[in-house]
Design a protein around this nucleic acid. Structure first.
Lengths: 246, 246
DNA sequence: CGGAGCGTTGAGCAACGTCAAAAGACGTGG
DNA sequence: CCACGTCTTTTGACGTTGCTCAACGCTCCG
């Protein structure tokens, strides 16, 4: 059961900083309510008709594609505060994947009807929201590349680099510790590995001192080393301020 | 060197059938020219500023992410006739990947300025074009899933199912032979395998009679068997007519 | 106290990568 | 026309990554 909350001044977090102040205010005014969900809540299922979109205010959410016959589902995206989690559902109405919270999460809810009224009256805002969904697509491409062209150690290192970079962009602070609520099995589902092998990779990362992952918390100990292991380049994230996309 | 051509009545192919007749006419009227490119032409590179978008009229185009130090680049998308190949570049302006033709290709060119005028005056069309890019995103997610959660044989079988399904949707005909101009190395780059292993998988598919791939041509011999091997479900493609998305 | 979920580890093996060699297809220039 | 180079396909031998299966400890919670 979601718990409601009403708020006035919402700060622009992470990717919402792609929106100029005035447009963010206009969008925030359309938020119908703010829900709090427990960890592990299924927010929507594949194929369901969607009538609203959700903006993450705090917590972590994943999008995952269910697999046949009882196998674990594949994690295809991870959303951090400031991300729209299912804005794709606004034009498409039905999505190909499930949306699940990993941690306790606060979500701003905007009805599609309100969103439609908003963007039809504000063309630049429409273009900006379109861009946000295309940045998701860019990240999807990177995930496909990562899990196709990299080995286990590089995959996990690159994945951790992405999490570190995005989480630091959320609050514009350089932090080395991120509470993301993932289990080792979730990392396996996101990186296309088994839990047994993820466990071994995590031991290697811990022992060489670049990063440690314990109880859903990522500790970045040596960022340059981690970037080297993951061959990381943040261009594909189109971060709002550090400038130069790609 | 692209060769120009001017044409009046362009048929709606494949994914452009998501647009109603009248809107397609309006879009087609904005086509500034039609270029023909040879196989292997690089149409745009990662990070370049784009001022136009391209619609494939005939031929096959891939999007690929270059990898460091001389390694082969990773194929992250494949575009067939009726697909916009870089509509993502309209809102984003710069892309994270290269665009390369695989076969001789005819492309309709629409300047971003014309596209902007068009969608700003036609909100439903804007929503439809947005949808087209989100279908690309859905396909990206599927590629990430395929290369993360499936084994070599299933990956290639599923990839062939996608090609078969999309090519048949282009001309609304059930064909069993598709000229796609891929090499075995391209299949390897798309499926996250080595060329040696792709070759062995192709031999297996050929010997069990489900599909054959020779000289850039895919022959589908036993579609049900291929779908079984690839655990294929076309929902993620959001095909224009067969209805039921997801 | 018992169970469920998560993390950890090991032994054995299958799938896939690496490296190397060679043959066929094809166009090019002599 | 032939010789040549390049690209693609094919195949083999061999290595290794990462999966499978199994067991066990840990923590949390009912």
């Amino acid at each position: 059961m979601p718990q409601h909350r009403t708020e006035k001044a919402l700060p622009r977090l992470g990717m919402t900083r792609h929106l100029p102040e005035d447009r963010w205010a206009r969008l925030a005014a359309r938020i119908s309510r703010i829900d709090t969900h427990a960890a592990g809540t299924v927010l929507s299922r594949r194929g369901e008709r969607l009538e609203q979109s959700l903006l993450v205010l705090s917590g972590i959410v994943v999008r995952s594609i269910p697999r046949a016959n009882g196998a674990r589902s594949t994690v295809v995206a991870l959303q951090v505060p400031g991300d729209f989690v299912d804005l794709h559902g606004f034009p498409l109405k039905r999505l190909d994947h499930d949306v699940v919270t990993l941690t306790e999460t606060e979500m701003a809810v905007i009805a599609h009807a309100d969103l439609a009224a908003l963007v039809d009256a504000d063309l630049p805002l429409a273009r900006l929201l379109w861009s946000l969904t295309l940045i998701d697509a860019s990240i999807h491409r990177h995930w496909a590349m990562r899990n196709s062209a990299m080995r286990a150690l590089g995959r996990v290192a690159n994945f951790f680099c992405e999490i570190d970079t995005r989480m630091n962009a959320v609050h514009r602070a350089m932090r080395n510790v991120h509470e993301i609520g993932l289990t080792q099995a979730d990392i396996a589902d996101a990186c296309g590995l088994t839990t047994a092998h993820v466990n071994r990779v995590l031991r290697d990362l811990r022992e060489d001192g670049s990063a440690a992952f314990q109880a859903g918390v990522l500790h970045v100990h040596d960022r340059p080393a981690l970037h080297r292991l993951g061959a990381f380049n943040a261009g594909y994230l189109y971060l709002p301020e550090p400038g130069a996309p790609v």
